[in-house]
């Protein structure tokens, strides 16, 4: 595969042609905050946390969906980008009811960690306090829409890896909600294979194992890379 060279944060780095800026950064240990992105799933560009500056482009571009190109000059951190990232986190926290203190994923939550890492220590916007439900109809898992950030990792892992496409999104804009099948209770879903991948990839406490109490829900998404490498690189022989 052809190799290209580009400049990221004043350093010359190499990348494989076709890689995204985010992938190139990760391989070189350059940290860019992400929320909707997950290694192994298609890139979406929705959470806007991985926005970077590319010289010559007047707009900030999502590192996850932008292809790294020869001679590109990328800035991943500066005062403006960092401020925007904090503001985007403020919006994310204001959108739903992320009451960390009483969340199953407290202390194991990607959103919570991002806020601490990026220094988002208070939200200036009105908390929207929407009325959202909890669906615990499934025998093993539950979904708490109060914690959902609409990263759609669940939708993507179910479609792209498990192949069931149980999850999708209903409505649009601020009314968007993740749904199973025809917006029926999860427990009634005919397509759900109960594989639990969606729960493991969920960055917050929105999807959880039933019976988890506050701060008990730990997730592990690294299985994804193993499965995919096994499949794609034919590492797993039949």
């Amino acid at each position: 595969m052809p190799v290209i060279t580009l400049t990221i944060d004043d350093e010359l780095v190499s990348a494989r042609a076709g890689q995204s800026i985010l992938e190139a950064c990760r391989e070189h240990g350059i940290k860019i905050p992400t929320l909707c992105n997950l290694d192994g799933l298609s890139a979406r560009g929705g959470c806007r946390l991985c926005l970077v500056e590319v010289a010559g482009n007047p707009r900030l571009l999502p590192a996850c969906t932008t292809e790294a190109l020869e001679n590109m000059v990328v800035t991943t951190h500066n005062e403006k980008i960092d401020r925007y990232r904090r503001m985007i986190l403020e919006l994310t926290f204001a959108e739903r009811n992320h009451t960390c203190a009483v969340c199953v994923s407290n202390q194991h939550c990607e959103l919570q960690t991002l806020a601490a890492e990026l220094g988002m220590d208070h939200v200036r916007y009105d908390y929207l306090n929407p009325e959202l439900g909890l669906d615990t109809s499934h025998a093993r898992y539950g979904v708490d829409h109060n914690r959902c950030v609409l990263c759609l990792r669940c939708v993507r892992v179910c479609d792209e890896v498990e192949g069931a496409h149980t999850w999708d999104v209903k409505g649009r804009g601020i009314e968007s909600r993740v749904i199973t099948d025809l917006n029926r209770p999860w427990g009634d879903s005919e397509s759900c294979t109960e594989c639990g991948k969606c729960v493991e990839v969920c960055p917050t406490g929105a999807l959880f194992d039933k019976g988890s109490a506050v701060a008990e829900m730990k997730k592990e998404a690294s299985f994804l890379r193993r499965i995919l490498d096994g499949r794609e690189k034919n590492e797993w022989r039949r």
């Binding site: 479609d159 069931a164 496409h165 149980t166 999850w167 999708d168 999104v169 209903k170 409505g171 649009r172 749904i179 199973t180 099948d181 025809l182 917006n183 005919e190 397509s191």
Partner: peptide
């Protein structure tokens, strides 16, 4: 309604949640 969406999803061989997502968008 649900019956119609279910019918359409079966006929077009699309996941039900996909059809529901489009119908509510």
């Amino acid at each position: 309604d649900e019956e119609i969406l279910d019918y359409v999803s079966r006929q077009l061989k699309l996941p039900p949640s996909w059809v529901y997502g489009v119908a509510t968008f």
